[in-house]
């Protein structure tokens, strides 16, 4: 590479239905590093972008939830593989976004890769761990299985730009839900680069949709959208949380109200998986 070569700068766009559109509003906003230096312009997602993302997520739900758990596990593992190959790029982006040294950023990227592997392994074990055979008092065979809730709107953590994002998105899709994610508002670039990884990991288009922009602008539309089944408030601004919960009540959404200051470097448990699962109980008579 010539010393004088001018780098090709990337246009950061949204990720909806497996494609990378600009915001339909044609708006963008400047993203800077922790010291205020310009990094790039990010698309400023709108209400209509959110609506398109929900439609894409709904469209993808039947296929993704109907895929075998083995298949979903392989796709999630594939995400980890592809991410591994781009460790340096992500370390640089996380370092710039979060204002930390490259070495520290590298550790966060590694943890994010490992998190995909962790959730990949869960896809075909959730039903065995959370499901049951029910010894009912009568001549019936009864069993219960966990099933995905549907379309989950995720307000990603504002500070942890990659590890936090992966930690909230992977459990949503591991069990067969589809996701509409509003990324960190000020640190959105690792998320958009992650969408390039998702797009090349055999993850069907629409399973994960990423919107960059103003969380406070987009979140209320998702909270009140009738085709959204669950809402993760992790990255919601404090002032908005109660309002978003109230909106979610309009269609009885499941709301994950994560405690403030979740440490994403800690080993996760099953709580984020359980948050977006419905238990279905099936009965059938026994007899000759």
């Amino acid at each position: 590479m010539s010393e004088n070569r001018i780098a090709v700068a990337k246009t950061y766009k949204l990720y909806i239905g497996g494609k990378f559109p600009r915001s339909e509003s044609a708006r963008s906003y400047p993203v800077t590093d922790s010291k205020g230096a310009f990094l790039a312009n990010a698309a400023q997602g709108s209400r209509k972008d959110a609506r398109d993302a929900v439609s894409a997520a709904r469209k993808a739900f039947a296929g993704w939830s109907g895929a075998t758990a083995y298949n979903r596990g392989q796709v999630l593992y594939r995400v980890a593989e592809v991410l591994e190959g781009r460790r340096e790029q992500f370390a640089a982006e996380v370092s710039a976004a979060e204002g930390i040294g490259v070495k520290k950023a590298q550790a966060l990227v590694d943890a994010a890769i490992d998190r995909w592997v962790w959730y990949a392994g869960w896809t075909d074990k959730i039903a065995a761990v959370l499901g049951s055979s029910n010894p009912v008092a009568g001549p019936y065979f009864s069993f219960s299985t966990p099933e995905p809730t549907g379309v989950v709107a995720v307000l990603a953590p504002q500070r942890s730009s990659l590890l936090g994002l992966v930690s909230v998105v992977a459990p949503v899709i591991a069990s067969g839900n589809t996701a509409v994610v509003v990324t960190s508002e000020d640190r959105p670039l690792p998320a958009i680069t992650l969408s390039e990884v998702l797009a090349t990991s055999d993850l069907p288009g629409g399973v994960v949709n990423l919107l960059t922009g103003r969380t406070a602008e987009i979140a209320p539309w998702l909270a009140s959208h009738a085709d959204v089944n669950a809402l993760d408030l992790t990255g919601a601004p404090d002032a908005l949380r109660a309002d978003l919960e109230r909106s979610a009540a309009g269609t009885v959404k499941r709301v994950l109200r994560t405690r403030a200051g979740e440490d994403f470097t800690a080993e996760p448990d099953t709580s984020r998986l359980r948050a977006y699962l419905e238990t279905k109980t099936v009965w059938h008579p026994t007899g000759v």
């Binding site: 009568g138 009864s142 089944n229 269609t251 419905e278 238990t279 099936v282």
Partner: peptide, 24 residues
Amino acid sequence: AGVVWANTFNRFDPTAPFGGYQES
């Protein structure tokens, strides 16, 4: 739906989880 009865209906038992999807 949270409970599916096949070739039977309205069976309840404390060992069998009961509850709804969506607005149920």
